[in-house]
């Protein structure tokens, strides 16, 4: 398989997964909003930081109300990480992959893009937003199923799986971060009753409540939920599960020793972490580190299998610092190929 095609397939999967998870991200915040008392209302701006798009958002010099932020995350074509941009990029990639992808997938992607564009007004009204986002999540899940059910297990499929699972691990960690980045005073008086609701919401956002119950058989608690969404080995949206998937598919590719090394680093980092014992700032820090590990794995895949970027010196891997004060978010979009 051509390196260029490999890159397009990989990013196609990332774009689709990103669109789905951005929809989940907006939903978790909206739900929190309904469940929490006014004094603990979550801040919509946190979503901008979590998606690593603060600079872009500020450069717009427009409003910062909920409506503006939601528009930016869902419908803004100037935001390359918005849902609409992601689906558009996925579709543009798919155009070059007609010989690789099952035809139904291409047709479905076309339909989905047109539908999303058509129903955008619904996304911006609070009353219809949930349904709109649900429709996106369902559409993406259907695409995932079509790919699973109709594609041969060839190199293209392997690259799809790498992109999907790496993006999913990254986005799940960002969704967990919605909770921690709010820096809500978990021990504030009067807040306790609502604490559980938040973690319940998080599980539901990841479609994980039922599976959590099946595996944990305990009440919903902060420590058990963090264990589950970050380190479960059976739940397909848990970070550690996704990393194991990446490892499994990397083994199917030639010349993967180097990347497998980085992947091993990411895995052991997560395996030895103890998220349940961390306070909120500590958890935020852990997630930052995890995301940096994921970036290193991505860089490894890009350097091994993708065409070199213009001006690429082959040094980028060493440029990523494991700073203990990793306040800087990696922007979601920085590595995507331009078509």
């Amino acid at each position: 398989m051509l390196s260029r095609v490999a890159e397009n397939v990989y990013w196609l999967a990332r774009y689709l997964e990103r669109a789905e998870n951005t929809a989940r991200l907006v939903n978790v915040n909206a739900k929190l909003l309904l469940d929490l008392p006014p004094e603990y209302r979550p801040d919509w701006l946190a979503l901008i930081d979590i998606t690593g798009s603060r600079e872009l958002f500020d450069a717009r010099e427009k409003g910062t109300e909920e409506r503006d932020i939601v528009h930016f995350l869902i419908a803004d074509l100037d935001n390359p990480g918005s849902i609409l941009s992601s689906v558009r990029s996925a579709r543009e990639n798919a155009r070059t992959l007609r010989d690789v992808l099952p035809n139904e997938v291409w047709e479905h992607m076309n339909e989905l893009f047109m539908e999303i564009k058509e129903k955008l007004p619904a996304a911006l009204s609070k009353r219809t937003r949930f349904h709109f986002l649900q429709r996106i999540i369902r559409g993406m899940q259907t695409l995932t199923g079509e790919l699973e059910g109709t594609m041969s297990r060839n190199d293209a499929f392997t690259l799809l799986m790498l992109g999907r699972n790496l993006e999913r691990a990254d986005m799940t960690s960002r969704i967990v971060d919605v909770r921690s980045a709010q820096l809500l005073p978990a021990d504030a008086p009067g807040f306790r009753p609502f604490d559980t609701i938040q973690w319940l919401n998080l599980l539901k956002t990841l479609s994980g409540y039922q599976m959590y119950r099946l595996s944990q058989r305990t009440l919903v608690s902060r420590s058990a939920v963090l264990e589950f969404v970050l380190r479960d080995l059976q739940f397909p949206r848990a970070c550690l599960f996704c990393l194991k998937e990446v490892e499994h598919f990397l083994r199917a590719l030639p010349r993967s020793a180097g990347v497998l090394g980085s992947l091993g680093g990411a895995r052991s980092f997560l395996e030895s972490a103890t998220p349940a014992t961390l306070d909120q700032p500590g958890l935020h820090e852990l997630i930052d580190q995890l995301q940096l590990h994921i970036i290193v794995v991505h860089e490894g895949i890009a350097q091994t299998y993708f065409p070199p970027r213009a001006g690429d010196t082959g040094q980028s891997q060493s440029q990523i610092q494991f700073s203990s004060d990793a306040r800087q978010r990696k922007p979601l979009f920085s590595e995507a190929p331009s078509i």
Binding site: M1, L2, S3, D155, P254, Y305, P307
Partner: peptide, 17 residues
């Protein structure tokens, strides 16, 4: 952009292999 002519004056394509 997938192709290159190397020092042996042969044409190569860049693949995942």
């Amino acid at each position: 952009r997938d192709l290159a002519v190397h020092d042996d004056d042969c044409v190569y394509m860049q693949t995942i292999h």
